[in-house]
Amino acid sequence: MRGATVYYLKILLAICTVHEMAGGLIRNTTDAAYKKYLSLRSLPFEDCGSLYRVNYLDIESCSTLPCSMKRNAIIKVTVLFDDNGNGVTFLKHEVRWVFNYIKTQAAISPDPCDGDHDCIMSASDGKTYWANIFVNETLPVMRGSMLWESKDECNQNLICFEVPVLITV
């Protein structure tokens, strides 16, 4: 037992030495591993041309696809993304329901997401924002998708993802 403890202590010392010599390489590797872990825990989505990498997507009460969304419900959507250190502080959302190639505008709140609403925050692993989407009572009861685009003040598309949904009553 004692030999194993000494062995593990030597490994720990080697790791610490490598960390010092590598000037933060381990920290960067740890950050990358954490982001990979987040992406594995994320709700699956299709990226449709994001400028920034989406590391994690959470849609309230949705754990499998298609996301079941009840008419007349308000559902919180949370996104963790990497803004590459650009200090994103404003996001204007364009969200549409897509059914058989017909797109219908969705109601989002708050929109825009800016400093007045506390909906976009810096995190140690990037930026996070949240918004609530209203599932309109006139949407058809059927499968489709939710197409979510978040743009900056200049209307540049920063984040874009699409998620399969099932509208229910």
Rank of each mutant, 00 (worst) to 15 (best):
W148A: 03
D114C: 01
H93G: 02
A106E: 04
H117S: 00
T128Q: 11
K151D: 04
G144H: 02
K151T: 08
E149M: 10
D118N: 10
Y129T: 12
M142W: 13
D114A: 07
R96G: 10
E137L: 03
W97R: 15
V141A: 01
I102Q: 13
V135E: 01
A123F: 10
A131P: 01
T138P: 00
F134R: 09
Q105F: 01
M142H: 07
D118M: 03
D118G: 06
G144A: 05
K127D: 04
R143Q: 12
G144K: 07
M146Q: 11
A106M: 10
T138A: 02
R96C: 04
E153W: 14
S109M: 04
S150F: 09
G126I: 05
K103T: 14
P110K: 04
A123R: 15
M146P: 03
L139N: 05
S150Y: 06
N100Y: 09
M146T: 13
V135Y: 05
M146D: 03
E94G: 09
A106I: 01
E137P: 03
E153K: 13
F99I: 10
M146L: 13
S150M: 08
K92G: 01
E94F: 11
A106Q: 04
A107T: 14
M146E: 12
K127N: 12
M142I: 08
H93S: 09
V141N: 02
C113Y: 00
Y101V: 15
M142P: 02
Q105T: 08
D114Q: 10
E94R: 15
K103D: 08
E149Y: 14
I102P: 02
A106F: 00
K92S: 08
E137V: 07
G115F: 06
E137N: 08
N136I: 01
W97I: 06
R143L: 04
D111W: 03
A123N: 14
C119V: 00
G144C: 06
C113D: 00
R143P: 00
D125M: 14
D111A: 01
Y101N: 13
H117K: 00
W97C: 02
N132M: 07
N132V: 02
K151H: 12
R96T: 13
D152W: 12
L147T: 15
D111E: 05
T104C: 02
S145I: 04
S150C: 06
E94H: 15
A131R: 04
S109V: 10
F134I: 12
H93L: 12
T128L: 12
V95D: 03
W130G: 05
K151N: 09
H93R: 11
N100P: 06
N136D: 08
K151M: 09
A131W: 03
V98G: 09
W130I: 10
V135P: 00
G115P: 01
S150G: 09
F99P: 08
R96D: 12
G144W: 09
P112Y: 10
K92C: 02
Y101G: 15
V135F: 09
